[in-house]
Design a protein around this nucleic acid. Structure first.
Lengths: 224, 224
DNA sequence: CGTAACTTTGAGACGTGTCAAATAGCGTGG
DNA sequence: CCACGCTATTTGACACGTCTCAAAGTTACG
């Protein structure tokens, strides 16, 4: 199996925490601040699902492995995003840090109590779940009905919408992470970047730094 | 664009209804029974999302179209399944009957009120949403990390787990529906069925009737 | 019995994966 | 500050799987 270089070390609980919890509607669920180095395992598939997490800084990926070990990244979670929602008592997927990152972890029991006692909290939780469902459906459409170039263009547009600073975008994740999210190989992802550069849709001052110079061209490429 | 033969006719409200609503926890949300012919549109993407639906009999597919008209079936919903959950006020996808079917439609406002007044109902709704999220993630894994034969085998196993009667399975959907769910072509799906028959994993007395004679072999094929 | 829709089968084209190698980038230690 | 080594990325040539196009076969239904 491919060595993914994920460290087995746990995250350090940060003593001097400024962030206090996760807001669910009006309710603030108190939580613990944690810090992880890049490529650390936050939780693994099969472990007890004890916490709901919110990203304070950095980036996190949620990952599933198929029976024979092929890796599929389900989602990237950036600052402000929440992850760790589960139906049962165990995690169905694992979560790993993409970069060094800070998280807030709230005990699931607290979340459940908040939802049981406060309508707004319950609604916020439902909202969270349904919007993740929508993102997953978008992902299905991407994988099912788009070619390699279209997937990469769509991926960049999705990131650009949320994180572009003056037309510039810093990718926290490697080509391998992008490939495993888009169900391609690193070679194909790399070729797609190169092609988009040739088409003057983007510029690549460095491999992790993207300048979107022609959004329209990207949207054309995204097509599908 | 491919002609999918979906009729524009609405569903008839059944006067003499025996099913009365959808259960959410302890709460029974009263609804209206409806009937649709096969390949009828139940709702379209972009329409106002007024109802939550439950399948009483028959089968329903939820569908999204990519910008250039390629069709992706997100899920099949069989008797007992619920669909129509949305984040916003509009449907993000459309729903069509696969076969003649009977549904219960409950006004969203009633569902929301039930969830606001009753903890159990809110929890049931969340449960519904998270389990659909889990199914969508499984779908992502299927599309992202499996080959044609593996997808078809996985599809059959998923159906077989829920609807096998004495090792026999009746497929309500056409090869085209299966192809559009698995992101393959009808030709590739057909070849996969033929191959599984050659491998003595299944028998095909008719194209819609599957006898699973070697579940282990199917699980091998599903591999991935 | 005839017709239309659905399914199966075949041959060849195309896109992405695989394998191999060159290049660029980055942190570490001298 | 530079040299080194390691990792990440890019590029190329070729293989393989699925799609496309075409046609034959099957089933359902009037």
């Amino acid at each position: 199996m491919r060595d993914l270089g994920v460290e087995g070390v746990g995250g350090a609980v940060v003593a001097n925490q400024r962030e206090h919890g996760i807001a669910l509607g009006q309710i603030q669920c108190p939580g613990v601040a944690m810090r992880f180095d890049r490529n650390a395992e936050i939780f693994g598939a099969g472990e007890a699902a004890e916490y709901l997490y919110k990203v304070v800084s950095g980036a996190v990926r949620t990952v599933r492995f198929s029976a024979d070990g092929r890796r599929q990244i389900m989602a990237f979670h950036m600052a402000g995003d929440t992850f760790g929602l589960e139906r049962g008592a165990q995690h169905e997927y694992s979560a790993e840090s993409v970069t060094d990152c800070e998280l807030i972890a709230v005990r699931r029991s607290l979340v459940q109590r908040a939802a049981a006692e406060n309508i707004g909290a319950a609604q916020a939780l439902l909202q969270l779940s349904v919007s993740q469902l929508e993102r997953a459906q978008e992902h299905v459409l991407l994988l099912g009905r788009k070619g390699a170039g279209e997937r990469v263009a769509g991926f960049l547009l999705g990131l650009a919408d949320r994180f572009t600073v003056r037309g510039e975008l810093d990718l926290p994740m490697s080509r391998l992470d992008i490939a495993d999210y888009l169900a391609l190989t690193i070679e194909t992802v790399s070729r797609a970047f190169t092609q988009m550069e040739r088409d003057h849709a983007i510029e690549l001052p460095s491999s992790r730094h993207v300048v979107v110079c022609n959004r329209g061209a990207l949207e054309m490429l995204q097509a599908a």
